[in-house]
Design a binder for these strands. Structure first.
Length: 481
RNA sequence: GCCCCCAUCGUCUAGUGGCCUAGGACGCCGCCCUUUCAAGGCGGUAACGCCGGUUCGAAUCCGGUUGGGGGUACCA
């Protein structure tokens, strides 16, 4: 029965970084916009200062949105718009408010106000309300908050929230130089663009009565508000750029899949009411209702995100997994010499790695031994696996056994061979494989060993085994001498 | 200080007066599987902040309290 198309507003600040809180908000807005055939997701870069609307920042925002699946070429996508481009309209509206008596000029300095009120925490006292000041230098425009009565914000997630007018000071809407403040610009733009749904973070709830008052003063029906709970850190404080890992890009760099991030973010403050939590965007989108969003703050739990990510990675088709790993294998990022990389070898191990990585970047330590000239030197692994005596015995026995040309170089026979070698030394396979694993891969943990040996080839395996043996003997000699 | 918001396992949540001796997920712990590590299977740990009301009956409604959080600029 809605006659007006839904026009939700998504308004990131103009900065290159894309915040996870902003990402969740974007997703919620996006779901709402897409639920109606003619719904619109309006992307507006909010800053009244044109100098701060840097193109590269905006590109970053668009890129981050695209990563989440919010694409510029989607018919529901509108924008980006720049708030600063509407400066003329903002000034015009300020003037109109003044002419209508809804705003007045004020020449009080902050010091004067504080002196009059005695308490620095108290707001403006309305000193210039009835002084009838004309516009002029040093004079800011203040909105005349109606006397008496509350402004009631009808919030879709919080219900009715009342703000007594006596608690709202006559706030400034335009500076002495005529430039608009955020509140004014924001409302004017929303009116201009026909925004009818505003979904944003709870931190804006306190500004809402001011904005609503402005809408009404302009003779407009305010939009439907929805204030989302804030996302907090382990100390239950709002996520901050300085303290917390909030940049979407950093999660992307680590190898979080956008599908997993989207899934996880949607669950922060909202539940699809299904018997499962892992579900794709296509299923969540139609289920989403802002009115079902919780009002309590939510902790951003990277552990759970990781778990989700692992599930999404495991669900990938093998070829898709290989493709998704690409960025971490690229010459500029991988730790091995570019020429060493072998596509066929990687494709062969990828399925073994797929269930072992929770984030894509972990693919590197899993496969690096295949492409590095010499395996990484991990001290802890070495100390753990190369115990005096058995380490060297195991290595030299394996070296001999692997030299046998009659031993087929394949995982199964290799396993049997090593089992045999271990048994000869009274070791179970679990113990026997350790020194070999460390000698060949550099680490105590990793991919299944025998498949790894097969892929690496007899020569390289034997080369590494003897190198490790030499290192052990050298250390032995040093400690004796 | 003032204004506003919030309150179920450690965490994200289900729950809208009886289906709740409170369900799921992540985490954690144990067992199984096992060449390491994962994955997988099975099992376990753990919550309605507190005090009063309303009601035959309250996690659910009301009041208070405590505790958290947000806002409070001629910032955005």
């Amino acid at each position: 029965m809605t006659e007006t198309p839904i026009r939700v507003r998504f308004a990131p600040s103009p900065t290159g970084m894309f915040h996870v809180g902003g990402a969740r908000s974007a997703l919620f807005n996006w779901a709402m916009a897409r639920q109606q055939a003619d719904g619109r997701f309006v992307l507006r870069i909010e800053d009244t200062d044109a100098a701060r609307n840097r193109p590269e920042w905006t590109e970053g925002i668009i890129r981050a949105l695209a990563w989440l699946g919010i694409h510029e070429d989607d018919p529901h996508f509108e924008g980006p718009y720049f708030q600063s481009a509407y400066a003329a309209k903002h000034r015009e509206t300020a003037e109109r408010l003044y002419k209508d008596g809804r705003a007045y000029y004020c020449d009080c300095t902050r010091e004067q106000v504080q002196e009059r009120r005695g308490n620095p925490h108290l707001g403006y006292d309305g000193f210039c309300r009835d002084r009838g000041l004309e516009p002029g230098p040093g004079r800011a425009l203040r909105f005349r908050v109606p006397e008496g009565g509350p402004t009631v914000v009808d919030d879709q997630v919080r219900g009715r929230v009342e703000f007594e007018h006596s608690a709202i000071e006559d706030f400034v809407i335009a500076r002495a130089d005529g430039s608009p403040l955020f509140v004014l610009a924001n409302v004017v733009d929303d009116v201009e663009m026909g925004i009818n749904e505003v979904v944003r973070g709870e931190e804006h709830l306190s500004n809402t009565p001011k904005q609503q008052l402005l809408w009404e003063a302009l003779g407009q029906t305010p939009p439907r508000w929805a204030h989302l709970p804030v996302i907090v850190n382990e100390k239950r404080q709002k996520l901050s750029k300085r303290r917390d890992k909030v940049a979407l890009e950093s999660y992307q760099d680590e190898g979080y899949l956008p599908e997993a991030m989207v899934n996880y973010l949607m669950l922060l403050g909202w539940s699809p009411g299904e018997d499962r939590e892992i579900l794709p965007w296509s299923e969540m989108e139609p289920l989403f209702r802002v009115s079902d969003v919780n009002s309590s703050s939510a902790f951003f739990d990277e552990k759970k995100l990781r778990a989700f990510n692992g599930e999404y990675i495991r669900a990938l088709a093998p070829d898709d997994f290989v493709e998704r790993c690409r960025p971490w294998l690229a010459p500029d990022r991988a730790p091995w010499p570019a020429a060493n990389f072998d596509e066929g070898v990687f494709r062969a191990v990828a399925p073994l790695a797929q269930s072992r990585v929770a984030v894509l970047s972990e693919i590197v330590p899993n496969v690096d031994f295949l492409f590095l000239d010499t395996p990484v030197d991990d001290e802890k692994s070495w100390a753990k696996a190369m115990k005096p005596g058995v380490g060297a015995e195991m290595l030299s026995a394996a070296l001999d056994r692997f030299a046998d040309p009659g031993l087929p170089w394949a995982a199964e026979p290799l396993k049997a061979a090593l089992e045999e070698v271990g048994a000869g030394l009274g070791l179970k396979l679990g113990k026997a494989q350790a020194p070999v694993r460390v000698a060949v891969t550099g680490r105590t943990v990793g991919l299944p060993l025998f498949e790894s040996l097969e892929l690496l080839g007899r020569d390289r395996v034997r080369g590494r085994l003897s190198a490790a043996l030499a290192r052990l003997e050298a250390a032995d000699a040093a400690s004796e001498g």
